[in-house]
Amino acid sequence: MKPPAFVYHRPGSVAEAVETLAELGADGKVLAGGQSLVPVLNMRLAAPAALVDINRLGAELAFVETTADRVRVGALARHAQTERDEAAFAALPLLRQATRHVAHQTIRNRGTTVGSIVHADPAAELPAVLMLCDGTMELASAGGTRSVLVADFFLGPLESSLSYGELALAATFSLPPPRTGSAWVEVSRRAGDYALCGLGLTVSLDEDGRISRARAAYISVGPTPVLVDLTDAVAGQAHDAADWSAAGALAAGKVDPDEDIHATADYRRHLVGVLTSRAGRAASAHAAKAADR
């Protein structure tokens, strides 16, 4: 469990990083928090010829910015920074709700929000949050910077539309409309493990406290996070008396989980239903509280 030799680059600026990545092309791989990449290297599951370590780019990339309509997280913001950022929490509670389920504190101290998204693990929380927040990814290359909508970003397990030579600069999460609540729930074998099934769910209420919109993004039940619009199942219902089991049933029909050594596909689909109800109730209560403010 030692990696094969690689060339190590440590650029001092984003411009230099992008330049280096352009030179390296398919041979280069970005190293940020390293919480997924380093084990993969050690097990020789991947053997990039060169690593481009962006850990010296904190001045440019270690930010969590909250504005009127979005939270923008830079490529070097650790999970812990995202989790603790009060302005981001006030604007988009889901970010903290979900990040708390990312592995354990020691891993969150090192791993990055953007790195987790770029890694595109279908069991990871942040890709689902980005989906639920209609987010975009800012990808820089020698040719300039492009924005990719989340709907176009995740292609499959561990596969995104990030190209060789590109550096993910930031992830942008759109803020929900007023009177929106959210919840993150998941079932994992042990505290901090990848979820057997998990979801983030947002509920928006109208001025009468009735549900106007509900959406959820599910993890560990498909090749990418699965976004399901639940509005049809609960629209118009009182926030504290909605039929979330119908929403759960709707969602269970939209996922196609695999079986593995930890859970059967049927069990995972069952969890989609159960956890949708739990998240729906929690998010509704959260929305009602938001409406009171």
Partner: peptide, 11 residues
Amino acid sequence: ISPSELWELRR
């Protein structure tokens, strides 16, 4: 016994 197995047993 895992939760998944217990759930399958319940079924």
